[in-house]
Design a protein around this nucleic acid. Sequence first.
RNA 1: GCGGCUGUGGCGGAAUUGGCAGACGCGCAGGAUUUAGGUUCCUGUGGCAUAACCGUGUGGGUUCAAAUCCCACCAGCCGCACCA
Length: 799
Amino acid sequence: MKYNFKEIEPKWQTRWEKAKIFNAPDVSDKPKFYGLVEFPYPSGAGMHVGHIKAYSGLEIISRARRMQGYNVLFPIGFDAFGLPAENYAIKTNQHPRVTTDHNIHHFSEQLKSVGFSFDWDRVIDTTDEDYYKWTQWIFLKLFEKGLAYRDKTFVNYCPSCKVVLSNEDSQGGKCDLCGSDVVLKEKEVWYLRITEYADKLLEGLEQVDFPENVRAQEENWIGKSKGAFVNFTIDGAGETLRIYTTRPDTLFGVTFMVMAPEHPLIDKYADKIGNFEAVKAYREECAKKSEFERVNLVKDKTGVRLEGLAAVNPVNGKKIPIFIADYVMMGYGTGAIMAVPGHDQRDYDFAKAFNIDIIEVIKGGDMAVEAYTGDGEMVNSGFLDGLTNKKDSIERMLGFLEEKGIGEAGVQYKMKDWAFNRQRYWGEPIPIIHCPHCGMVGVPYEELPLRLPEVENFKPGEDGESPLAKIDSFVNCTCPKCGGPAKRETDTMPQWAGSSWYFLRYIDPKNDEALADMDKLKYWMPVDWYNGGMEHVTRHMIYSRFWHHFLYDIGAVNTFEPYAKRTTQGLILGSDGTKMSKSRGNVVDPMDVVNAYGADTLRTYVLFMGDYGASSPWSETSVRGCKRFLDRVARLADNLSEETEPTLEAKLHKTIKKVTSDLEEMKFNTAIAAMMALMNDFEAAPKVGKAQFIDFIKLLCPFAPHLTEEIWEMLGGEGFLSTSSWPVYDEKKTIENTVEISVQVNGKPRDVLMIAVDADEAAASEAGLALPKIAKMTEGKRIVKTIYRPGKILNFVVK
RNA sequence: GCGGCUGUGGCGGAAUUGGCAGACGCGCAGGAUUUAGGUUCCUGUGGCAUAACCGUGUGGGUUCAAAUCCCACCAGCCGCACCA
């Protein structure tokens, strides 16, 4: 067969689309399979090879599942709100709606040209008002339940993008959008109370099939710790300074306290602090430091003592000094700590720098050298003295604190509430009205969607104000409660809003009554298999699981966890082994590969290049290797026999077994290798049976669907190969009668032996000893032991 | 510091329930076809002083047998991080 991919690829793409063979019916007798891939942001640059790899994994699984008799939902859509579209609009003076529509069209054409088997009747676009109506609906529900609130605190602000960022979007102190250093800025913004769901997010991880690194990373991000809150009194002020500690057992070792520079109590006692000017100066210095600088000065502890104030250690009544220092963060715990220099290295460093007493309360270390954080016998600790078990000491102390009413057990999370806002145009408007009489009032449900108004200028204000604030006709409104004049919220939602529930909308994309019909949800949910990138673990995965838990609580969905199984794909690196980037000039355009070698080659190559979960470098010559393989398949299709070739039967059935099981583990590289090996066997065999070859092209179909459809048609197959049945292996046929086993002497392989798989030890030994090499090596020696594993090895232990 | 992971030919990578290390592919070498280049096909390809011996980051150990299991290191990657 002439393999003209330029002709056959569009031919089959058109036929598939016309016949709608990849569309999933909502009613079916077949078992369902919901395969999900992370929908793309439709950038103007078009697809990246990374998209191809990310989608190819579940593309293969979904195609195989269809052939295995499943009703498969494999949808695609576009996550199209976001800053790049808006920045592009500002630059080119086009409405983001126009560029977004254009980009979505372009992306769709590209996706189709690769032959992905998406259900194109269920495409969603997060910027479509019929879609974001429901994103706003979910926000209103959160608001109703008190889970969406406004608060004036220190926020992560990107001076370059002029937006407030969530903690998740400013990891490492860098803006996730542009890479600039974020600064802390005091501002009133919207938050979602994700911390309320921290425990559920942890519990849910027990019910799902996530890879260990993903689970660990989520747990780490949530960062639950168990400890205690303890109230220290401030001498003479009648005020308590509340702290959080994970080591209440070390309370007797407390020699000072530290508050975060931003701690509100400082201003309250401004007149009592003798050196308030110095304190103020230190605070200002800290405020100027970027997150990056704060982190990189780990070793140097700085701070200022609050003169005139002292705290009282509640366990022994000792007066201790209070400091402010930037090694204590306002955002964790209570923003104040009890310092135990003997058993915490940071406190130790601070104590050394400020000449503060260090008390040993746990034996085992050397206080002259460093803090001791291990276990040991309690000393200098009153009623805890003599205890050797940390757990006992903590329990005893907690009992004491609770009895005296000076503290109690508590938990803390590293995760903070989700800063849920952007001061930008191209996002979902937050459906809230600010009324001078009624306070914050939700836009009535029947008025949703609250549409984005037309604006002249998409640029954000200099002080981080949304462009929507400049549109009087949008801002000024009447309060739905009292009918008086009121103003609309002008912030929009962050990028992650639309993607936090999109998988639900695929199930019922046109529904006008609900985000999705409950019967349909019950049929399709949960997502059976979700593949995506590691970069979304501490953002999209956490956010969407939170929203889903919430929707479950209000009865809008039927499952607690949205995703039953999660897998991740590795990056495709440039041919130089570094991350693909325009500046390095090592970017590969997938469309160039489609044009030069065909979509089937591209699909096969991205899965053959290495472990699906690991990163591997691009290799143009290896792409050609995959093309050669497909060429050989096309050629062999012309030379088939009507008769089955018996010597190929075991190889074929083994390959069916191997490919079938490899797909389940996403071991695509070895599945392709097995098919290549079978092709080698086919070519070496005297003939290849047509039926045998058909089984082979069925295995290959998910990887190279265009070529295999063409061969199927040529061989007279009925209908589409893509909807035919997956080959079934016969276990009996996978076993070869005669196998080659290794014959060893003292564990070293010396020769090989062809022998029946079911030969017994006596027969095997006899045959093994008859081999000239083995006979020579065992001659004149005593065989102490013979180890025989049928079908594997024969080993003679000699002396 | 905490958490997750990885070290195998010239390269990407197989083999991880202990059982012929290097499947499959790339590259390379030789040959065939071709006016030539490319394509395609065939053969070979871990090292080496080649019947032996040595080889899976290093050093020990268990075993008839170790890339695989155990102990101690070394190197590198990813995520979080002054988290109290």
